[in-house]
Design a protein around this nucleic acid. Structure first.
Lengths: 345, 345
DNA sequence: TTGAAAGCGCTAACAC
DNA sequence: GTGTTAGCGCTTTCAA
């Protein structure tokens, strides 16, 4: 049944009238039908279908204090969100897990600098039951918004800001992944290994840099071998150019995301450096770009979709437990990283 | 002021008590403060701040029948959404326009085949005041969901399904853009011009194919010169390979999206065809990939972000007008397409 | 198993 | 200007 936009949608009342029962009974049927005689239940169901009744969510959540929705807040400028397959993959994992639990995903984009204000209000206004946030920077105002809203929150990536000790999060072992990457380059005989990092106010970027340092031969450490690529393809392109200028003799580079690595490969080709003959390249993520690059990228695999799934699962568990449940409290999860050897290094 | 998750958020009542006024007065202040004495207004504002009061949206929209939110429904598998910069750009335009109107953007992803059911329910449940949809296919069930919800809806791209005559939409002149592309190739002396299309159950893809046919020398038309690239980079790669196999003598190709063109260029390079010397390539979109390709891509520019803006503006106008307002009814918008000549063809 | 009634937090007449 | 009051559509005791 279709409703013109100017006629009001049917209410419980209307369904009740049509089925010849009370509102309470209709409500029971709509919410599963427990404790209602089979025959009556069928009658009500028919009335619901006939009228095209859909419960009004505002009314419902006013009394239940539940919305059945989870907000995913994205702070990055949308350009990055939609350019980096990382976000899409993580979101897919989240989306799959939430819809399995019949929970709606609300994607909130913060596009202006002051946009976190709006997002804070939105969360505090009770539009969602919980919050998922990822790719946060050190002084991001969003965690405070989530905190103020009082909503259960799960972070993607270990939080780096002060006071986040008790925060719930899902991350991979970035430091270990980076170590594997650099050890691999060394094992292949590379002696002068550079790194292209992400923005260092993100823990994932910092952790990978730390791992690089861990695995490097201390004798070869050199600040000129470090450049920030900002986790974008163009940034990777530029950072690679900077590295080549500052250290023309480099023979290996660990690039902290596949997207940046695709940019770095472009620069290397433009400069006439052969990969892997002249320079060995290892990326990070093992997402689409990795398989497509020329040559195919050796990289560190993290299961991004699974991380999204885990984030959602953690949050759903928190929500199911209720606010007071101290026992069976979920804990942060750190997933492993694995080196995937292809042809670039 | 921060609220622990187990204590209830303050209500109007609480603010009223603290400020020593009635709920109605607080409500007035919260909604702009018209008709309230300055002194009282200040007192109330202080109470609001002290208590960290944020209006409960469920209660509010229950009575106002407004949510202050607009749903953007995305039907494509998320992989495509997050791989094609087209979506991101359009979304950015939408996002900018909506936030200027203090309207929240809700991104709804349909990830399972049956996901439209959930989305239909969500829309009908009154979570949003209006709907934005784009990139629809001919037999997509989503428009029917929007229709059934009774919410004002604006489409991105001319609707192709039956009964959409009165639908409101924003599009570019795809057919004309395609004509420009092909005419350009012909003007550069190309005689055997192929086309890589999008999925032909989308009007944008069909219109571009029609434009290709319009501008082609009828004598050179040949079904072997047409391949479907599905609007993905991998699809473009594959389609280009098919074309080269079926028509090795082709000397030009019009690729109906930049993303597919990036794939096509890879294939051409792999097959040893020089661009533009051996084969001229023209893309469509003029988004990021165009500038990055090697060689830089000649393409047809459409202002995707502006199209997003226009979609939002159209919807907001509809919403402001109210359901009954027949006069000043907004009409579909078709924006122009312009050829941007670079080096690929 | 079903119904009556209270009330979630807010806005909007209407009265003062 | 400000307060009183009646719902918005739903769930949920509590009685029957």
């Amino acid at each position: 049944m279709v409703h013109a936009s100017n006629e009001r949608r049917p209410t419980l009342e209307a369904v009740a009238a049509r089925a010849g029962v009370s509102r309470a009974t209709v409500s029971r049927v709509v919410n599963g039908g427990a404790g209602v005689r089979g025959e009556v239940r069928e009658r009500v169901r028919r009335a619901v279908t006939d009228l095209g009744y859909v419960p009004n969510s505002a009314a419902r959540s006013l009394v239940t204090r539940r919305t059945g929705a989870v907000a995913v807040v994205i702070a990055e400028p949308e350009t990055r969100v939609f350019a980096d397959p990382f976000f899409g993959r993580q979101l897919r994992g989240i989306s799959r897990e939430l819809s399995a639990a019949d929970t709606q995903l609300l994607l909130l984009l913060q596009e202006t600098r002051a946009g976190h204000e709006r997002i804070g209000r939105y969360l505090s206004a009770g539009h969602a039951d919980g919050v998922l946030m990822f790719s946060l920077h050190r002084d991001d105002p969003l965690p405070a918004m989530a905190e103020a809203s009082g909503l259960p929150t799960v972070y993607g990536g270990r939080p780096g800001w002060a006071g986040a000790e008790r925060a719930l999060y899902v991350d991979t072992d970035n430091r270990d992944g980076a170590r594997q990457a650099v050890r691999h380059l060394r094992a292949r005989g590379r002696r002068r290994i550079a790194v292209i990092t992400g923005p260092l106010d993100q823990t994932s970027a910092q952790d990978r840099l730390d791992g690089y340092r861990d695995a490097l031969d201390p004798a070869t450490a050199d600040p000129r071998l470090i450049a920030d690529g900002g986790f974008t393809a163009q940034g990777g392109e530029r950072a690679m150019a900077e590295l080549l200028a500052a250290a023309p003799d480099l023979d290996g580079v660990f690039v902290c995301s596949d997207l940046m690595a695709s940019g770095a490969l472009r620069t290397l080709r433009a400069h006439g450096r052969r990969v892997p003959e002249d320079v060995g390249v290892v990326g990070y993520d093992d997402l689409d770009p990795a398989a497509w690059t020329d040559p195919p990228l050796t990289t560190v695999r993290q299961d991004v979709e699974e991380m999204g799934r885990l984030m959602a699962r953690l949050l759903l568990r928190r929500l199911a437990a209720g606010p007071g449940a101290a026992r069976d409290e979920p804990a942060p999860v750190v997933t492993p990283a694995t080196l995937v050897v292809r042809e670039s290094g």
